[in-house]
């Protein structure tokens, strides 16, 4: 466990909590893609099945359980509790365009051809593209609430920190998981455009709006 990994996990947790707090306080999930949140719930569900088979550490188990619970609460808030505020009109990304290739790829390129391992691989590939419905929604409406951009910033920061974590692990323990690293880099690239807007607009006190 290194500093990048810890900070990455903290950023990830912070992003999820920011989103939950935003929905809870404003009693609205306007501007949030329910589809991205369903994908994240699916990512955690398929990845953390090893909760039943492998014990890594107390930290690992607790974080997994927290992520799972938060993901399902978020989906519940969007589709049940604050359903009326959900902008389904603009959440129109076609999920099959992500799910079909990701499923196919996880069968083709994995560490071993076993159900748990294929599901783990599926979750890694799916996570790398799960934010796309959210980014699509922002590009469609042309704007995002500032708190939503903070959510995206911490989610992107988590990915960037994980890359630093892998560089560190490669040099210190020769650890290198190609599937996770390649997917993680792809995922981080999706945030680059957003990072640029975040730094040039949101951090200067302006609202994120696209021309």
């Amino acid at each position: 466990m290194n500093i990048f990994r810890i900070l990455g996990d903290v950023s990830h947790l912070l992003a999820i909590i920011i989103l939950l707090v935003k929905i809870h306080r404003s009693k609205s999930c306007a501007g949030i893609s329910g589809k991205s949140q369903i994908l994240f719930a699916l990512v955690f569900t398929t990845r953390y099945l090893d909760l039943f088979t492998t014990f890594i550490s107390l930290y690992n188990t607790v974080m997994k359980v927290i992520f799972l619970i938060c993901a399902y609460i978020t989906v519940y808030m969007i589709y049940v509790k604050f359903r009326k505020t959900f902008d389904s009109e603009n959440d129109s990304f076609r999920l099959e365009f992500l799910l079909v290739p990701v499923t196919g790829l996880s069968f083709l390129e994995n560490h071993s051809f076993t159900p748990l391992e294929i599901l783990w691989t599926f979750s890694i590939y799916l996570e790398s593209v799960a934010i796309l419905p959210q980014l699509f929604m922002i590009s469609k409406t042309g704007e995002a609430e500032t708190i939503t951009t903070h959510y995206l910033f911490f989610l992107g920061l988590y990915r960037a920190l994980y890359i630093a974590n892998w560089v560190w692990r490669y040099h210190t323990e020769k650890f290198y998981d190609q599937i996770a690293v390649v997917s993680g880099v792809v995922q981080t690239i999706f945030y680059c455009d957003f990072f640029y807007l975040y730094v040039t607009k949101v951090l200067k006190g302006k609202k994120l709006s696209l021309p």
Binding site: R5, H12, T54, I56, N60, K64, E117
Partner: peptide, 10 residues
């Protein structure tokens, strides 16, 4: 040969 990985990250 494909190695079995221990997935210790989140």
């Amino acid at each position: 040969e494909k190695k079995s990985f221990k997935h210790d990250e989140l």
